[in-house]
Simulated scan of single mutants.
Amino acid sequence: MNQNLKLTYSKSLLKQAALVGLVVLSSSTVFAIPSDRNQPISLLADRATYNEKTGITTYTGNVIIEQGTMKLQADSIVANLNSKREISTITASGRPARFQQQTDVNKGLAKGQAQKIIYNAETGIITLSGSALLEQNNASIRGNTLKYSMNRGDVEATGTPNSTGSSSGRVQIVIPPSASKSFPGARD
């Protein structure tokens, strides 16, 4: 590879790394505390690849992306670009993939984990699948699949049906006593 081609490739990979980092973080900063947006983005991985023809950027090996209170950890992160060279989907996979972020200065860290976390930039839907869990301030929701619509602000939880009545695989919601009054349908 000649020196100019190496320099062009390095700039292209750096540009794509920054783009993926910004999109991952900008999708989560919608709910972040304002100071997070002004923090530098740090992206660490054992390996990063970018394919100009397919528009796929892949980070593998203990991937960690941080900005302010936001932290995303996964075994791998794959970003796909659409025909306009914009991010269409980002998929984080792990055992499990984990994220955390402070969404409000008056609340604790919001944390989530699943075997796979997919962000669809075109629909604004984040899907956590495979032992999915979201928790904040001792409240939690657990299921096989959790879908959160950033556009509508709603969550859909799906479990694995079973006939035994056990909680294994089923949707489980935990509401701490202090928050139960604000839960829809709850009464004193």
Rank of each mutant, 00 (worst) to 15 (best):
M1T: 07
N2Y: 00
N2Q: 07
N2L: 03
Q3G: 05
L5I: 10
L5M: 12
Y9V: 07
S10T: 11
K11E: 11
K15Q: 14
Q16Y: 07
A17Y: 01
A18L: 08
A18M: 12
S27E: 06
V30E: 13
F31M: 14
P34E: 11
N38R: 15
A45Y: 02
A45I: 05
T49D: 11
Y50H: 08
K53P: 08
I56K: 05
T58Q: 06
T60M: 05
G61C: 06
N62F: 08
N62W: 02
I64Q: 08
E66L: 07
E66M: 08
E66G: 09
Q67H: 01
K71H: 05
L72V: 15
D75A: 13
I77K: 03
N80K: 01
L81F: 01
K84S: 11
E86I: 03
G94S: 09
G94E: 10
A97V: 13
Q101H: 04
Q102I: 01
T103Y: 01
K107P: 04
A110S: 14
K111N: 15
G112T: 13
Q113A: 15
A114I: 09
K116I: 15
I118E: 02
I118Q: 06
E122F: 06
E122Q: 13
E122N: 09
I125F: 02
T127I: 13
T127H: 04
S129A: 12
S131Y: 11
S131G: 11
E135R: 09
N137L: 09
N138P: 04
A139D: 13
K147D: 02
K147F: 03
K147C: 02
Y148A: 11
S149I: 00
S149K: 00
R152K: 10
D154E: 11
E156C: 13
S163R: 10
T164I: 00
S166T: 04
S166D: 07
S167C: 06
G169W: 00
I173E: 01
I173D: 01
V174F: 04
I175A: 07
I175W: 06
I175P: 03
P176T: 13
F183H: 12
